[in-house]
Amino acid sequence: MLSGSIVALITPMDERGNIDRISLKKLIDYHVFSGTSAIVSVGTTGEMSGLSHTEHADMVMWTLDISDGRVPVIAGTGANSTSEAVLLTRQFNGTDIAACLSVAPYYNRPTQEGLFQHFKAISESTDLPQILYNVPVRTGCDILPVTVSRLSAIKNIVGIKEATGDLSRVNQLKEVVDDDFLLFSGDDITALDFMQLGGHGVISVTANIVPQEMVNLCKFALTGNFLSARSINARLMPLHRALFLESNPIPVKWAAWAVGLIKCATLRLPLTSLSADYTDVLKQILINLRLLSL
C-alpha cells in the first residue's frame, strides 16, 4: 500500500524547453537515495498542461525506465475531457505503472454526477489503480465526500489526493470510505495535521527540494511520533509556504535550480520565471535550511 512521502516531481527542461533527461535521472536517483515512497510523474507540479501528449507519455515512461523498479511511479493522467483522460490512462495499460493520478476535470465545472461518471468511465478503461485528485482552487469544482464514497465502491479506485487544505475533509472522508481507501494530502502546509487525523501520507511539492526530511516527517507522523514530526515540520514551514509564493511549479523549479538539482529553471508559457521580488525570499530560506551557502 502506498503511503508516506510521495513526490510530485518537477519536469526538468533545458534552455530551449525540451525535457532534460540527464537532470531527470539525477532527480530520480536523488529520490531513490532519500527513500521517497513513490514518484508522481506529470502531475500539476510536472507541468502536465504544458506538455504535448507525446511528451507526457515519454516523460512518464522515462521516469519508469530510470526508476527501474527502485521506486513506484504514479502517472498523472487527468484531463477535462473524459475521452482524453481515458486515452491518457489507456496508454499505460500493460506497463509497470503503480497507479494513475487523475485530476478532477478543470474549467468545465461538472456536477457531482458528472464527476462520478467521468471517473467511472476512466476506471472502466483500465485495470490500473486510480487515485482521484481534488484541487478546487485550480479546477473550479470540488469532489465532495458523498461522490468519493460512490467512487470508492469501484474496485480500482483506491484513493484520493485531497488538496483543499480543509482538514475537516479527513474525517468526512473517513466516515464514508473503507479503512484501506488511501487518503493523501495535497497540501504540504497542512499535511502533518492531515496525517495526524488519519491520512496515509502526502503527495508533496516540498519533497522535490528536501526529500529525506519529508520522508522522515511522514515516518514519524505515521508511527505516532508527532513531537519529532512537528519539529521537522516547523523547520520546513517557511519552505512549504515559499513554494507557493507564485503559482506552482514556478518557485519549486527555481529552488531546484538554485540548489543544483536541475540545470536551469525553464518553464513553458504561460508560466514565467520566478519574480525578482521573491527570489531573495526563497534564497534566504534555502540558506537557512543549509541548502545554499551565503
Rank of each mutant, 00 (worst) to 15 (best):
6 I>T: 02
8 A>F: 04
12 P>Q: 09
26 K>L: 10
27 L>H: 02
27 L>R: 03
32 V>T: 07
34 S>F: 00
35 G>Q: 04
40 V>R: 01
41 S>T: 07
43 G>H: 01
44 T>V: 10
46 G>H: 02
48 M>P: 00
50 G>V: 08
56 H>P: 04
59 M>D: 04
61 M>V: 06
66 I>E: 11
67 S>W: 01
69 G>S: 03
77 T>N: 05
80 N>T: 12
87 L>Q: 10
88 L>Q: 09
89 T>D: 08
90 R>T: 05
95 T>D: 01
96 D>S: 13
100 C>L: 12
116 F>G: 00
117 Q>R: 13
122 I>S: 09
125 S>P: 07
126 T>H: 06
126 T>W: 04
127 D>Y: 01
130 Q>F: 07
132 L>V: 03
136 P>Y: 03
137 V>F: 12
150 R>T: 13
153 A>G: 01
156 N>Y: 06
157 I>H: 00
157 I>C: 07
159 G>F: 06
160 I>P: 01
160 I>E: 08
163 A>F: 00
163 A>L: 01
170 V>K: 01
173 L>M: 14
175 E>N: 15
177 V>K: 03
179 D>S: 15
180 D>S: 12
183 L>G: 09
188 D>R: 09
189 I>N: 12
190 T>F: 08
193 D>V: 05
193 D>A: 14
201 G>A: 14
205 V>D: 08
207 A>G: 13
213 E>T: 04
215 V>R: 09
219 K>M: 15
224 G>W: 04
226 F>S: 10
228 S>H: 09
230 R>K: 15
233 N>R: 06
234 A>T: 11
234 A>D: 12
236 L>I: 12
240 H>Y: 15
241 R>D: 13
241 R>P: 05
244 F>C: 10
246 E>Q: 15
246 E>D: 08
247 S>I: 08
249 P>L: 02
251 P>K: 02
254 W>E: 06
258 A>C: 00
261 L>G: 06
263 K>E: 15
264 C>G: 12
265 A>V: 10
271 L>V: 11
275 S>H: 10
281 V>A: 04
284 Q>K: 15
288 N>Y: 02
288 N>G: 13
293 S>I: 12
